[in-house]
């Protein structure tokens, strides 16, 4: 999952993210690729961001497949919708987990407007 790894590594380099200046807490992403589990731990202290690969306790844990993770980092996925669909499973602090959506690129920037509503 090079795309996802690159995304989190880039986040680690940023250090401070003003989009999270109201956020305080720890969030872990558990990304499953078949039998393989890749974990990223984010510690956020009012915008100060520490990103480390690997396990560790967190107030919110997001469990998702590598496909869903890649779609998110490519900006092809609305995180709240994916959670309502059961594609992202959140354990722990849901409000904190939902704040993480801000870190990912905007879905609409990556796709054509109008396309996803074929049904109506």
């Amino acid at each position: 999952m090079p795309v996802t790894d690159a995304f989190f590594e880039q986040l680690a380099d940023v250090g401070h993210d003003p989009r999270l200046c109201k956020v305080h807490g720890s969030v872990r992403f558990d990304i499953r690729d078949g039998d393989r589990l890749r974990q990223w731990l984010l510690s956020i202290d009012h915008g100060q961001l520490r990103v480390t690969p690997g396990d560790g306790p967190a107030q919110a844990v997001l469990k998702l497949s590598t496909e869903v993770a890649e779609a998110m980092v490519r900006g092809e996925l609305n995180g709240l919708s994916a959670m309502l669909r059961g594609e992202i499973l959140v354990d722990g602090d849901l409000a904190l987990a939902l704040r993480m959506g801000r870190l990912f690129p905007s879905p609409a920037a990556a796709r054509e407007v109008g396309h996803p509503w074929a049904r109506r």
């Binding site: 989009r19 609305n78 801000r102 905007s106 879905p107 609409a108």
Partner: peptide, 15 residues
């Protein structure tokens, strides 16, 4: 409403 305030442009969500 502050926590969910728009942070970026999104043409589907009109954000």
């Amino acid at each position: 409403l502050g926590a969910l305030q728009g942070v970026r442009r999104d043409d589907i969500l009109d954000a």
